[in-house]
Design a protein around this nucleic acid. Structure first.
Lengths: 234, 234
DNA sequence: GAGTCAATAAAAATGCATTTTTTATGTCTA
DNA sequence: TAGACATAAAAAATGCATTTTTATTGACTC
């Protein structure tokens, strides 16, 4: 239609777009995702939307309700806690494996990724560059575990990172993770390159725990909970 | 259409059916899955098939090829090795967590699951009851890790188990895993209930390694490789 | 006023006809 | 014979009209 259909299918286009909107918190938790409405606004048929939503549901990025359509996934503190905890467990595992397979190329990739991250993370530029920072942040963490030797592990970590990203966007606390993350990321990189697995895992867990706690606290506040309330669909 | 549409959608029906066919090796690796053909044979429209295949692709149970349809997933020895290795890693992790959260109900569930498994696994009945045995086998292993406290971990383990199941079905070595598994499962259960995490993890890894090696050896044989060859789709 | 029940509106699910893209076939040329 | 090109056939992708299901509204009963 509009610009480049090159190579991609309508359904994939909708999938990509919806995916990003969900991750960046464009939909409130449990908000209904009306198929026809999306089809209209994207200028495609309903089947493409259906297919896109089905894929997203399989990745747990939307909730499917048989014969009742789809909703943005719910959010809750217990959910967040098990998500964050699982992330620590699985990513630690991947980091350990990655460190066991240490190679020069891997180390270099980490250094480069950190370099890019710190460039985008400078205090001044930071405000405008949230999407960029986010991309580099993801890339840095992925570089750490990239050598784990299992595309399954990488995929699991990605999935958990996506889920966390959504929580972070919806809750609006990304500023914090970016701000003081700077020093922490350097420390994390150094301990990983240093080769002490136990210490490295501890550093990673500590790093993620900051966000875990920050969001936990936010969940205690009334105001925040109010922003989450939406017409629930059983 | 035919019997009970009760509650489920056409797409889900196709999804369930295709899923089982893929898991039980009805399709050769990399075999093309023609949308219209499936739609015809299932007596549904092509959209339902599309949706089902899209979901399965998101779970890595079929391969999607943009604008070229879908194929049954490829199989290869490296793929099998990383799959089996990842399974050991992730399921060990889940087992550890599960044992850390030990409860009476959990222990009882394991005992019951083992009981059912051993009943179906008796040498005489065994030949007829492969689907039953398979179900109970899955259930037993799931019982071990059920207490890990993370639905994410459980889901990851399920996904890996599905993938392994396909390899085992296609390769036809399930007889073996069932045969000598009997004693091994008892030993595994006992060491888990005993509470020594290190030993339990070792037992689990040893258990899965048997299958890993058996399939690795099979991959060395010419005859087996021949059964896998099919018109490849890039 | 709470609870049924029917009627209506809204939304999801579905099938099919059409369009678009890919794949296969065959002819011609260098 | 290998490659380029055109043509035909097959398959995937798409939109829309229709069917089916769910959600809403409001009258009616106890």
């Amino acid at each position: 239609m509009s610009d480049k259909d090159q190579k991609t299918t309508r359904a994939t286009m909708v999938y990509d777009r919806l995916r990003r909107e969900i991750l960046t918190g464009q939909f409130r938790p449990s908000e209904k995702l009306r198929i026809d409405a999306i089809a209209d606004s994207y200028g495609v048929g309903n089947n493409a939307v259906r297919e896109a939503l089905s894929r997203l549901a399989a990745e747990r990025l939307v909730d499917r309700h048989e014969r009742r359509g789809f909703t943005a996934p719910a959010m809750g503190i217990e959910d967040w806690q098990t998500l964050a905890r699982t992330r620590c467990l699985v990513e630690s595992l991947a980091l350990r494996e990655s460190m066991n397979n240490r190679t020069d190329a891997w180390e270099e990739r980490i250094v480069v990724a950190y370099h890019h991250l710190s460039k985008v993370g400078k205090a001044e530029k930071f405000r405008q560059n949230l999407p960029d920072w986010n991309k580099e942040h993801r890339n840095f963490h992925r570089a750490l575990i990239a050598n784990c030797g299992s595309h399954w592990l990488l995929e699991f970590c990605d999935q958990l990172a996506d889920q966390a990203e959504r929580y972070i966007y919806v809750s609006n606390i990304y500023r914090m993770s970016a701000r003081d993350g700077q020093a922490e990321h350097r420390a994390l990189m150094e301990v990983v390159l240093d080769g002490d697995i136990v210490q490295a895992e501890a550093a990673l867990v500590a790093h993620y725990s900051k966000t875990l706690i920050a969001l936990e606290e936010l969940f205690q506040t009334e105001e925040f909970l109010a922003t989450l309330v939406v017409e629930e669909v059983d």
